[in-house]
Design a protein around this nucleic acid. Structure first.
Length: 552
RNA sequence: GCGGGUGUAGCUCAGUGGUAGAGCGUCACGUUGCCAACGUGAAUGUCGUGGGUUCAAGUCCCAUCACCCGCUCCA
């Protein structure tokens, strides 16, 4: 076969299509943006990955810090939940961002991050107007001198090129060689009549603020009205939080313990891109780990390390993986620490990494929210978000989600560590990692999946499709496939059959040949090295069991 | 959402307004007897989709969808 052409990612996408790992959703109708299907090999691969996660994290998790045992249990929650869940969790407000676009430079801003400065605002005709991009009004005032300089230079406003900004009283003043002007800085949502919305980048005209809703909406019941509106979950985590009390009431788990869930989530991403990396429908593997507040830091560090190790154990090379601790200004308002586990996907620029999993220290934010109502950060304190009437903006359940620790004789709201992994992203990383081109091989393209993840574990071939060889190979195949996904192939040359298995990532091929008839041995061919050895055909299942077990 | 590029067989891609093509893959038969071997044959196309121009459109024009790249966005 000719050497593969095109860039690495294009070749990976082509192989995924060609061999049935991943197809575009609704392809015969032209596809649908942001949705993908797994084919026969892909579904096995992804299932193996999810099974590995469930086994390693839920059924048989590693020992905790100081070799303590802890409990892990699972749940499987509905995708559509009570709409109040999303209002209290903050998704409803956060996902409905107002955005503005610049009609000229085409940049997009969050409406609450754009401020309009009016110079000489006390005059009927302001001396100048420009936009400032900043986080909050205070930030906008801080940013004013830089924004003014940029505007003066960009719009060639000679008078203001060397202007000085001074703060006197409530409003800043701009001093130039010609005079001094009061500056008013307005929030975009509270612009006085007649003040234009201008871009903070090119000072062009901005659109009206427009709503971007990142949650998928649907209606529960046949009657479509505002009352019946509901949402497809944008994360699996909330199902765990709202079942916290159910789990502690019914399972005898004791803090520290974790609840895990694997399932689909939905987000109306603005720009789905990069193959399956950013999809609108995706699958998550999430753990919410509940612990005493005094131990939360050590559990956070524990999970961060456990999760990173899990990926390396499944064959992702450490040089392409990294753990990135979020900066303070990058943290969500509730988080006391977050690390991303990232992978150097081939579709990213050299040196860039894409998120596989976030491990977040969420404090008591989630359980408290579902007790008290939606929380906001006010001066470093998480308090219930209240409306103009002083009542909670979004009411919590009012249920007691505190935990009584019998050993400590103490009641508290557990802190939460959340390792939240993307099943599709991990699958994609595994595919990218496995994809190998070795021009020295007769079959240059192969998928070097970790044997535990390989969609097909073994292939059984008669060297030729006659001379009594199929009569030996077929029973062997039936024996193997009782335990693992296996394939039988009697067609084409032996080299072509090996090559097909290389592309599917099958780690071992067993070939029945003339010698098998004499001494009962078959050859085992190793995918990665091409090396062969002979073993007795009665040992094939044992051989595979050893190889697949040691691979864990 | 913006700008640029691409879209023809399962994959990779040729195709000058005038008959829809190649290589690989797939399937069958033969040969072969441990690494995409060889021979013979076969199947496979809404030329992304919808309009328009034209005697005639894969080719030109318009719209639209999808994918890739760059912005933007990603709680």
């Amino acid at each position: 076969m000719a050497a593969p052409t095109g860039n690495v990612m294009e070749r990976i996408v082509a192989l995924c299509k060609r061999r049935g790992f991943i197809f575009q959703s609704s392809e015969i109708y032209g596809g649908i943006n942001g949705f993908w299907d797994y084919g026969p090999l892909g579904v096995e691969l992804k299932r193996n990955l999810k099974d590995a996660w469930w086994n390693d994290m839920v059924r048989n998790p590693p020992l905790g810090p100081g070799n303590v045992e802890y409990q892990m249990v699972g749940v499987d929650c509905s995708i559509i939940m009570h709409p109040q869940v999303w209002k209290v969790s903050g998704h409803y407000d956060l996902f409905a961002d107002l955005m503005v676009d610049c009609k000229e430079c085409k940049r997009r801003f969050r409406a609450d991050k754009v401020f309009i400065a009016v110079i000489g605002g006390d005059l009927p005709q302001p001396r100048g107007v420009f936009g400032i991009e900043a986080d909050g009004l205070a930030g906008a005032l801080e940013e004013l001198p830089n924004a003014l300089t940029a505007w003066a230079k960009g719009k060639n406003e000679a008078e203001f090129k060397k202007a000085e900004v001074v703060r006197t009283g409530a409003e800043p003043t701009v001093n130039t060689h010609k005079g001094s002007y009061v500056v008013q800085v307005h929030e975009l949502g509270k612009l006085p009549a007649g003040v234009p919305r201008l871009c903070a980048n090119c000072w062009g005209e901005l659109t009206e603020p427009r709503e971007f809703n990142l949650m998928f909406q649907t209606y529960v019941g046949a009657l479509i009205d505002e009352e019946s509106k509901a949402f497809l979950r944008p994360e699996t985590a909330q199902g765990i939080f709202v079942n916290f009390k159910n789990v502690t009431d019914t399972t005898r788990v004791k803090v520290p313990f974790g609840i895990a869930q694997v399932g689909k989530s939905f987000r109306n991403e603005i720009t789905p891109r990069n193959f399956t990396f950013r999809s609108r429908e995706f699958e998550q593997m999430e753990i919410e780990f509940f612990c005493h507040p005094s131990e939360s830091r050590q559990w956070y560090e524990y999970w961060r390390d456990v999760r990173l190790r899990w990926y390396t154990n499944l064959g992702l090379t450490s040089s392409k993986l990294r753990l990135r601790e979020h900066d303070k200004d990058e943290l969500s308002h509730y988080s006391c620490g977050t690390s991303d586990i990232e992978y150097a996907f081939p579709f990213l620029a050299e040196g860039d990494f894409g998120e596989l999993e976030g491990v977040a220290h969420r404090g008591d934010f989630d359980l408290r929210s579902h007790m008290e109502g939606k929380l906001v950060n006010r001066d470093g304190q998480l308090v219930v978000d209240t409306g103009p009437d002083g009542k909670p903006r979004w009411k919590g359940s009012g249920k007691d989600l505190t935990y009584f620790d019998d050993e400590r004789k103490e009641r508290f709201v557990p802190h939460v560590i959340e390792p939240s992994a993307g099943a599709d992203r991990a699958t994609l990383a595994v595919i990218c990692e496995a994809y190998t081109v070795d021009e020295s091989r007769p079959s240059p393209e192969l998928m070097r999946f970790h044997p535990r993840l390989a969609p097909v574990k073994a292939a059984i071939f008669p060297l030729v499709n006659k001379d009594g060889l199929p009569e030996i190979a077929e029973p062997l195949y039936r024996e193997v496939k009782k335990r693992w996904p296996a394939q039988y192939d009697a067609k084409a040359s032996i080299g072509k059959r090996y090559a097909r298995m290389d592309e599917a990532g099958t780690p071992y091929c067993f070939t029945v040949d003339g010698q098998t008839k004499e001494d009962g041995t078959v050859t085992v061919r190793d995918r990665d090295t091409g090396a062969q050895q002979r073993i007795d055909k009665s040992r094939v299942v044992e051989f595979l069991a050893e190889k697949l077990a040691s691979a864990m």
